[in-house]
Design a protein around this nucleic acid. Structure first.
Lengths: 203, 203, 203, 203
DNA sequence: CATGAATGAGCTTTCATTCAT
DNA sequence: AATGAATGAAAGCTCATTCAT
């Protein structure tokens, strides 16, 4: 029982630190955030952070991985059961962008702060992110197999182009104080362009 | 003569510092680069840096502005004289991506390090970048006016999607040690998807 | 117990830093003293200084305030129980000057280094010092009320003149390598001049 | 003629630098004043300063010596021709304090900034200042010789007390934004106390 | 004499990390 | 497991001074 209690507490602290970090990173940026501020926001001692994370970079990476898992689950769920690859891309775009609305701080961190960790960008092998990209290319390949999408489309390029289009739209949405376009509109426009752009010509 | 000399000297130091900063930022990342290392690489004293730039952030911003001017000029020149909006987009993509090859370190900085400056991402009002984006939307509008592109495409969304697609491809190209796709291929694929995706249906 | 320990430790470090600062400031002067040298002399890390003081200026000001409190207490105690205002001034002078002997380094700092902090001289509102000056004027007023001192003496001027006379004597005593006059002599001479100079003429 | 011109110019620059330094030191304090700001205020190049002064400290010392000469001349002139030592002291006080009014910036520098140069306070042998103090003691000795002042007054102590009283009054007058007492009143009060305080008792 | 661009030593302060309790 | 006082390396920036022109 005391063990179980501790386990619960531990889990609690980990979560509290991640949540505090999201707020603090979003407010100050990664490099300008102090570990002690995260500790204060999480209501733990400075040293406690280091019982749960290796260092400051590790907080950012864990935070990103956990969020990426959630995004991945979400998107997979959104397209599950769909047959039409074109429809799948539309749902993908919709799911990706609507996650912004649910957790704007997290979106801002992924947009801006994540790229502040050079270590992360250059050294870290980002499995979840690759799974995410490959979800797109698998949809495209499926479309090509079904004859819906053109065979000359390179899924390896198109997946990045599609992600990049969504990501840039996210950046705009996160950083711009005035949002000219609704998320639904943006998702629809982008998936529309890509689907039509990759469509096989009528035989 | 002394004035010309000074101008030459001044211009020389400014350029040397910028070039040194490109190398140092590319090697260590912005936050892990020391001003003294830039100074050493530029063969000037630490204090000299501050005769030409306000602070470390300012170096990054100047470096970006100068590069952005060059990019803008390049792309404008590439599409000048073209009539066909579809062709213009293809040339745009080509010009954008081929600049990567010419100065890879600069490309890496803009991809990775530039976004590490909170000041840059959040506060700095980036005229040149907006001009760049608007170059895309003006091509799209031109295409719509000519009846080449569909009227329901929103240029404000499409310009970001197009730029994002190119930018993500740049990131891949800059960060990936192995380049699976040539720049020409990527440019062609992306512009192809967008052009076909925005094409008006045959009447 | 842990609380008491911490309190003891904290108090200890604070005191050690102040005492180290007195030595270092006295040796090098305020502006030529390095915080790191104070830290070394106090046997703490550089950063520890900033757990106890806001900055270098703050060390000087705290040091002064603590000393001023001690001086004020001392002088108040010295004149307590005295009825004769003339005798009070004599005791005041004696107490003021004899503090020099007890802590010459502190005296030197207050004479020389304290005045190097523009913040101190111009901005800092110095309550304790005003209390000190007003102790003098209240003695003078008391003497006037008792008919011992002339009514045309302006206590606001006389208090500064008296303090200035003592202060200049302190400066001489602190800075001069050879002391021609004993502190007792100086105190007696100065209070004698002021008392006789302010005495009401015999009716 | 060109030599004469240069000599004139030289004299001019020296004076301009001193005058600029007075303004800059008064505004920022000695340690927070930049040599380059003095140069700008004097309309000379930074390097030119070092043709006329050894270093920053030297500017302060020269500035002080020149002013002290002027003060000494002024005070000597004021008491010249007076026979009565008591009257002399009154005129001395009057002359000392009224110099404040004529050049407040200079007064502020001597009060506040001069003491910021450790070199000045500790090492510099200040002839002019000693001459000034000894002017006071010679008046006192003269008074003792004439039987006006008591023989038990020690001129070496009294001169410092008198100067200190005037100096503290100056500090108040310079630093206090509100001046409660006129200079004439202060001078009269201080000399009055000292003269009466040193007066020999009627035989 | 005059210049002012260039120098570079040296400062204060910050903050991720540790470790005795 | 938790704490938080203490650490100390590290870095951006300043500015008195120099010297080639």
């Amino acid at each position: 029982m005391p063990l179980k209690n501790q386990a619960k507490k531990t889990g609690d602290k980990h979560r509290r630190i991640i949540e505090a970090a999201v707020k603090v990173f979003a407010k100050n940026g990664f490099y300008n955030s102090k570990v002690s501020e995260i500790a204060r926001a999480a209501n733990v001692a400075d040293g406690t952070i280091y019982l749960y994370f290796q260092n400051k970079d590790d907080i950012l990476i864990c935070l990103f991985e956990e969020e990426m898992s959630r995004v991945l689950d979400n998107v997979r769920q959104a397209i599950a059961g769909q047959e039409d690859p074109a429809r799948k891309l539309a749902l993908f775009a919709q799911a990706h962008l609507s996650l912004l609305e649910r957790n704007q701080q997290m979106a801002e961190i992924i947009q801006v702060e994540l790229r502040q960790s050079s270590k992360f960008m250059k050294e870290y092998k980002n499995d979840k992110f690759h799974q995410y990209l490959n979800l797109i290319s698998s949809i495209i390949r499926e479309g090509q197999a079904k004859g819906v999408f053109r065979a000359d489309i390179k899924p390896g390029v198109a997946k990045r182009a599609f992600f990049g289009a969504l990501d840039e739209m996210s950046r705009y949405w996160v950083l711009s104080p005035v949002k000219k376009y609704s998320i639904a509109t943006a998702a629809q426009q982008i998936s529309d362009i890509f689907v039509k752009g990759m469509l096989a010509p009528p035989a």
